[in-house]
Every structure is written in structure tokens, then in C-alpha cells.
């Protein structure tokens, strides 16, 4: 099975690996897992005062496609509003990386991770507003 160049590039040179301070109020953290394959993925966003995502980090323990999917998402969300970031679909990720059918679930994991990070950020800001 041949993997696409984009996929291999993200796997070999993953962007934005690392962690942000999860207790910080402007950081949203999404932690998701695919128990069938034992993968675990953490994706974090830092939202600026202007409402734009100024930084994104990820840490993924899983297969190459899961690493590439989360790496790609961190790259895509930077500079976007959270509403825009929320519209990222797993099908876009799968298409961009040309994921083989058996690896589509890795892109699902990445979509769920960004959604979870956004939900966490929103819950924090809602709490602050109270």
C-alpha cells in the first residue's frame, strides 16, 4: 500500500508537537482515543483576545496516519476562529492526506479531537462569564 507524500511528510516532520498549559483559561484541550486500536490523541488550541486560534499543539500515540491527521489539523486551525475550526471535517483530512480506507478512522479521531478542544475552550469561557 502506497502512502501519499503529504502523509509521509506529516508523519516524518510532524508540525506542532507538544503541549500547552491545559489549566490556562485561553487553552482548550481535547483528549480522545480509539480503543479498538489503542490510540490516544491530545490536541490543544490557544485562542487569542481577537478570537483567533494563535497556537495549536498535539501529542498522538498511534499509527502514522493518526499522527499525520493530528499534525495536519494543528496546521489548519491556526489563524482560524473557533467557529471556522469547528467546520473541519474528517473527510477533508482524509482527502488531503489521501488516507487509505482502512485508515479513515484516524481522520475521525482528529476531527473529534479538535471538536473536543473547542468544546473545552467554550466551557472555560462560559464558566468565566458566569
Amino acid at each position: 500500500m502506497a502512502y501519499s507524500e503529504k502523509l509521509i511528510d506529516h508523519y516524518e516532520n510532524p508540525r506542532n508537537i507538544g503541549s500547552l498549559d491545559k489549566s490556562s483559561e485561553d487553552v482548550g484541550t481535547g483528549l480522545v482515543g480509539a480503543p479498538a486500536c489503542g490510540d490516544v490523541m491530545k490536541l490543544q488550541i490557544k485562542v487569542g483576545a481577537d478570537g483567533l486560534i494563535e497556537d495549536a499543539k498535539f501529542k498522538t500515540f498511534g499509527c502514522g496516519s493518526a499522527i499525520a491527521s493530528s499534525s495536519l489539523v494543528t496546521e489548519w486551525v491556526k489563524g482560524k476562529t473557533i467557529d471556522e475550526a469547528e467546520t473541519i471535517k474528517n473527510t477533508d483530512i482524509a482527502k488531503h492526506l489521501a488516507l487509505p480506507p482502512v485508515k479513515i478512522h484516524c481522520s475521525v479521531l482528529a476531527e473529534d479531537a479538535i471538536k473536543a478542544a473547542i468544546a473545552d475552550y467554550r466551557a472555560k469561557t462560559a464558566k468565566k462569564a458566569e
Binding site: 482515543g33 480509539a34 480503543p35 479498538a36 501529542k59 500515540f61 478512522h105 475521525v108 479521531l109
Partner: peptide
């Protein structure tokens, strides 16, 4: 009902434990 292929789970405690264990191994 067990989550099958492609289903993600949202169990923060378990995932945190798994993440920390994998970091430790790494």
C-alpha cells in the same frame, strides 16, 4: 456495546491515564 473500529471514546480519566503511561514509556 463495545466501540468498534473508528469509534472514539470520551473517557477523560482513562485517556489521561493512557496518555501519561505512553509518555512514560516514550
Amino acid at each position: 456495546e463495545m466501540p468498534g473500529d473508528g469509534k472514539t471514546i470520551d473517557d477523560p480519566e482513562l485517556l489521561m491515564e493512557a496518555m501519561e503511561a505512553r509518555e512514560e514509556l516514550h
